[in-house]
């Protein structure tokens, strides 16, 4: 290889052998550097995605009673599974329930995250380190464990809340699994587990802001509250937008919390309460991986659209804010 290059260089007139000699490296090396990422991206993203799309175009065809050898065949159905999903009212109800859950969860969680981040960032706050860790700690608890803990606290005869209410007011009528209350009960688990992470993102953004701005504001007579509201929050807007998008995606994907509550009260939270629970139910309980695949693709597309909508909405607000 090197010999050919030297010969070529000599043929070219020998004026620039060094440059010629080095030229193949930049052409090949970048591709080599891309290999790990490309291989991983293909193996863990593109291939499963392609396989899911393929499965979503198949269905089972059954001969007779469907018992015995060869009674069940996998056949192509085109968009048949998608038509099924679009007409499945249970699926769309699960999407609505997830969105309703998000409407409760996201404002409360992000509001608290921003509040805690601003408090921790403000001057003269004691127990900063402790506060940061204490608020972040629930995020380190796996959501499944957190959900089981909260579920136990909701169940009437083992719930500390119910027993406290009973001692104080003599009532046992607190029902955490009521038709409407259950949204708050589940959103509460999400807030408990998610606030810490979002607070960390916002807090990190706040720490990276230049201190001179605050100094200037103080000289101009701003109090801590005004600094927080008029300077800090507008300046960390990109981080707020990012947490909003992450939270929206997490909302549509919510599974662990409602699934755990489902195992404790199937009457309050059905087996198809959220979209992912519906997909799980149809794929495993219903043994229909084809319908489950079509639902997964529909949810992925929905998630993509909602993320874009959130991005657009928050961007417009950002621009609106700047023009004032």
């Amino acid at each position: 290889m090197a010999a050919t290059e030297v010969v070529e260089a000599a043929r070219a007139g020998g004026t620039a052998p060094r440059r010629r000699r080095w030229s193949p490296a930049p052409r090949r090396t970048p591709y080599a550097f891309m290999v790990p990422a490309t291989v991983l991206f293909t193996a863990v993203f593109l291939v499963p995605l392609g396989y899911t799309v393929y499965l979503s175009t198949q269905k089972t065809q059954i001969q007779g009673l469907g018992l015995g050898r060869g009674a069940r065949r996998q056949v192509f159905t085109g968009f048949g599974d998608y038509t099924g999903v679009l007409h499945d009212s249970e699926f769309w109800h699960s999407v609505l329930r997830a969105l309703l859950y998000g409407c409760v969860l996201i404002p409360v969680m992000l509001g608290l995250a921003a509040l805690f981040a601003l408090i921790l960032d403000a001057q003269r706050v004691r127990f900063q380190r402790f506060g940061r860790i204490a608020i972040f700690l629930p995020y380190a608890v796996p959501t499944l464990i957190g959900s089981i803990l909260w579920g136990m606290m909701y169940l009437p005869s083992v719930s500390p809340f119910v027993s406290v209410m009973h001692t104080l007011f003599g009532t046992t009528s607190v029902n955490f699994f009521g038709a409407h209350a259950v949204y708050l009960s589940i959103a509460n688990i999400g807030v408990w587990g998610g606030t810490g992470f979002n607070m960390m993102v916002l807090y990190t953004a706040l720490r990276s802001l230049p201190q001179e701005v605050y100094e200037a504001a103080r000289i101009d007579g701003s109090g801590e509250f005004q600094i927080a509201w008029r300077i800090k929050l507008p300046m960390i807007r990109p981080s707020v937008i990012m947490t909003a998008i992450f939270s929206t995606i997490a909302t549509l994907q919510v599974f662990n919390e409602p699934y755990t509550i489902h195992t404790m009260s199937a009457g309050a939270v059905s087996s198809t309460w959220t979209p992912l629970m519906t997909i799980y139910h149809d794929t495993y309980t219903g043994d229909d991986v084809f319908a489950g695949s079509a639902e997964s693709i529909v949810i992925a597309v929905l998630m993509f659209l909602v993320s874009i909508a959130v991005l657009r909405l928050t961007n417009r607000q950002t621009f609106g804010g700047e023009s004032q």
């Binding site: 009260s265 199937a266 009457g267 309050a268 059905s270 087996s271 139910h281 309980t285």
Partner: peptide, 12 residues
Amino acid sequence: SAFSDAFGAAAT
């Protein structure tokens, strides 16, 4: 599964 959902709600 349908039974747990429907009768769970009816019982509750």
